[in-house]
Design a protein around this nucleic acid. Sequence first.
DNA 1: TTGTAGGCGTTATCAC
DNA 2: GTGATAACGCCTACAA
Lengths: 348, 348
Amino acid sequence: MVVDSGRAGQGVARPPAPTLEEVAARAGVSRSTASRAINGGLRVSPEALASVEAAVADLGYSPNRAARSLVTKRTDSIALVVPEPDERVLSDPFFAGTLNGLSSALADTDIQVVLVIARPGENERSVRYLRNGHVDGAILVSHHRDDALERAMLQARVPTVFVGRPLSGADDVQYVDTDNVEGGRLATQHLLDRGCRRVATIAGPLDMSAGIDRLTGWRTAVTAAGLAADAVVHGDFTIASGAEAARQLITEFPDVDGVFIASDLMAAGAINVLTELGRDIPGDIAVVGYDNLGVAASTTPPLTTVVQPVVAMARAAGARLLDLLADGDSLPGEPLIFAPELVIRASA
Amino acid sequence: MVVDSGRAGQGVARPPAPTLEEVAARAGVSRSTASRAINGGLRVSPEALASVEAAVADLGYSPNRAARSLVTKRTDSIALVVPEPDERVLSDPFFAGTLNGLSSALADTDIQVVLVIARPGENERSVRYLRNGHVDGAILVSHHRDDALERAMLQARVPTVFVGRPLSGADDVQYVDTDNVEGGRLATQHLLDRGCRRVATIAGPLDMSAGIDRLTGWRTAVTAAGLAADAVVHGDFTIASGAEAARQLITEFPDVDGVFIASDLMAAGAINVLTELGRDIPGDIAVVGYDNLGVAASTTPPLTTVVQPVVAMARAAGARLLDLLADGDSLPGEPLIFAPELVIRASA
DNA sequence: TTGTAGGCGTTATCAC
DNA sequence: GTGATAACGCCTACAA
């Protein structure tokens, strides 16, 4: 006679989760009535509803998502797809903000967020996972480069909303972004307004829309002011690259008196180098960053920067995805663009 | 006659994912054989295996997790539980590192990570979700306070590994941590070694084990040196609180010549204030931080700090959870403790 | 309003 | 080694 059964490899067996059947039994109704009571309570008598709800509470019942998903064809989960797991992406506060906004958009939903970290090599696996109905939709942080993932997602017909304009640039792509061109222009104009005559930029990588657009904004402003738009150095949005770029900048363009740096992280690195090289900020060189992440307030001197409302963007992306999931036929994919805003601190 | 069917609210209908049935048909075998071929290929003839694999590749098949989960009682997903969604937690690079390490631990598994962000009020929902078999296990970033979640998880019998020692302090809790007492001691000893005679600390909150332990480490070192352990000010690990605490510190203990600050973020805020108040670092006051997150290298002056190997910790936590899932009967929950390490930069 | 009767896609248990 | 067949827990016509 078997006594010690159910040791399924978990140290101690946990009691099986209650099923709809048990709820129904306890409530004295049939499975179907219980099911209806749980899913909206339509076509259920008040008494039945009440007793089912009581049973649910008593038993601590929550529907088995697998079983439900099997029949409804929905998973009630969406993917947050993040390309490349290296320190760069994840430790970027941009990502944290995204998570924050997304989670708040989903707050009063029962939708779960599945984190899909797409490693360079194994995009295939990720794509297959995403396309085969394992999630209802996806948010893709396209903050970083135009990899195969973007294209794959689009043709997989999985409802997807990008945070940050994707470079693949299909026409009906859903995305949320800020106006990075305008942001870059704003920042640069501020430098010009305060009297800078030799304005450089430490630009982001050209395989990201944010990098491209902010550079364009800088060029627009500099050109409009009748100045030469030649003092350009590139970084990759990290602190280290900002430091390196600053060094290069000072070597190649020693007469620079103002610089627009395409991310706060790069600006933090650059400020250190500039200070080290004996340049006074903003006395000798005025500096404007981009993002308004935490680091901007803690540099010495504090960084004048352009706000990128990451949290709001992600929240909007989440909301848009929910719309898509509810009725995909409506909106023709008008992108949602947030306005950038200048925050003036001591560095410029 | 229905022509335009299957418009289930997705703009354009996507083709249904291929099923095992179809794979079997195309491979010329039965469902069972196809299933065995896919799950390990045991008890399958080489020919059958080959043709099934071919069919899988052709069709781009991937098993329906819901269906599988329904019968296996496993979900092949684990939860990453993060208390409180506010900026503080998510934008903390600590969290990013956790994600990074965890994802690398799961890299060659088919296990998905479900993000469970437990909002203050709705712990109930989270707990119910977690306990009812929706995930096979959980990683709980207990970095922040001892909330109900911790206890609930433990008694829910869901295999759980904490990152950072939980305060609930049951005996058989699985957790991964660094030796924060030793870390605090190391940092403080460094200040003493370089000649500081009035050593203060900006401690973390006392409702987190990291806050408590680092303070203990500081106290140990200061006391061992025969000095007074009375110069204590508290922050909550954020930049802003560090700035505030520094101000308070200078007011109450104007003769301080060295300070151990329990997080790099707080240290960044404090350094700004100290500099502002005209104190030279490290000339007037030497500063040591904790974490060795990105910000430590970018402060002015660069911050001497204690390394907390977050990524390695999270990776270890993931590995431990995997072990637990495989055979929970073995290890009696020996915590995994990483050794802290001092990184010397210019601030001390 | 309620209950009965499939069936969703997969794995597990058997005979073969 | 292989293939029927029975669950798994839920939703949803359909009939009552």
